[in-house]
Write a protein that binds this DNA or RNA. Structure first.
Length: 350
DNA sequence: AATGCGTGGGT
DNA sequence: TACCCAAGCAT
């Protein structure tokens, strides 16, 4: 490590001891808990994660409990947190560790990074936080600190930019106190080097920050030119019979993969054909719900229309008993549902 | 290499 | 309001 990198690390570590966060629930914990927290924290803010982390740990207190559980129950505990592939991959990785690593977390970077849901940054976080090894991390906070400090051009989606950021992350990471350093970089990013109006006067890197020197903090990181968010629409079918509601298990990949939801068709004219195929009945909804529910994803917005169909009796057969189920309203909570569907069904209870 | 993948909070 | 984007990864 050269002198510049050493002074960078020293400034960061000195700041951390006094101002950094030391009381997060996953700090000073075992690899399982560090891993769980890191996956939950992918693209998700600390305050959102904390209650999910606690609740998840209560049900799955260790790796074996997680590996032995059903994916349905794992997704149930993940519902509302988003990016559900994380939960599916978490479960897959738990099974691999149980079956191929004797239930012990790999301490080797290459073995860790091939596990589903564990990329370069998460592997670095686990190895540094849980095992004290020297590996850099590169989350949104660290990216922003480095992009500003070294005036890295481009935006995060660009491979050249990411390559440069990883190079810098590697270069500034000290061989000692790596966990403290990694934590410090995230803390500086989330507390000092914030997206808008960074608190540069309080920053330990003020003296070596190129953006501060050039008064160009607002220009880094550069923003990706964004395109218009597409609009999509769907029609969800709410079949009710007494207290029973028909739910559909979504395919294991794609949006809301593996979650239970309401059956969908493209438009109202397709409802009867759908019923004929899946329920062997035909009963049109009295009327479509007039209000559409507009749900915003990061990459598109979705207008959800709702058709409520009241049935006198439960249809005899469902053509696909694996992916369709009549669920009592009081048992809805046992299923992992997309957030807008959860809201629709909770309105029904009132 | 660029895009798909959730949700909620901040501005 | 509309937009940004957060403890990223998989493909």
């Amino acid at each position: 490590m050269d002198a510049d990198a050493a002074s960078f690390a020293n400034a960061v570590l000195t700041w951390q001891r006094r101002y950094g966060r030391h009381d997060l629930p996953w700090q000073q914990q075992d690899a399982y808990r560090v891993w769980l927290s890191e996956v939950m924290l992918q693209q998700t803010q600390v305050n959102t994660v904390i209650p999910y982390y606690q609740n998840f740990l209560t049900r799955f207190p260790d790796l074996k409990e997680l590996a032995d559980a059903s994916i349905d129950e794992v997704l149930q505990h993940w519902q509302g947190l988003g990016y559900y592939a994380r939960a599916r991959n978490l479960h897959k990785a738990a099974i691999i560790i149980r079956d191929q690593h004797q239930g012990c977390f790999p301490r080797d970077f290459a073995e860790l990074e091939v596990l589903p849901g564990i990329g370069r940054s998460t592997a670095g976080a686990i190895l540094s936080f849980a095992f004290g090894q020297r590996w850099p991390i590169l989350d949104g906070n660290v990216k922003r600190v480095l992009a500003r400090c070294f005036r890295v051009p481009g935006w995060y989606g660009q491979s050249a930019t990411m390559k440069q950021l990883w190079y810098l992350a590697e270069a500034v990471t000290p061989g000692e106190y790596t966990a403290e350093f990694n934590q410090a970089m995230m803390d500086i990013g989330s507390m000092i080097c914030v997206k808008s109006k960074p608190k540069c006067e309080a920053c330990p890197l003020k003296d070596m920050c190129a953006s501060y020197r050039h008064h160009s903090q607002a220009e880094y990181p550069q923003k990706k030119p964004q395109r218009v968010k597409p609009h999509k629409r769907t029609l969800m079918l709410l079949h009710r019979c007494d207290e029973q509601i028909l739910l559909w298990r979504r395919p294991p990949s794609g949006i809301w993969g593996g979650l239970w939801s309401l059956p969908e068709v493209d438009e109202a004219s397709a409802v009867e054909l759908w019923q004929q195929s899946f329920l062997s009945i035909v009963q049109s909804p009295r009327a479509l719900q007039q209000d559409v529910i507009r749900h915003q994803f990061s990459h598109y917005s979705l207008d959800i229309s709702l058709a409520i169909i009241e049935l006198e009796a439960l249809p005899d057969g469902i053509s696909d008993t694996e992916n369709y189920a009549w669920v009592d309203t009081k048992d809805i909570g046992k299923h992992g549902l997309p957030t807008p569907v959860r809201k629709i069904l909770s309105l029904l209870q009132e």
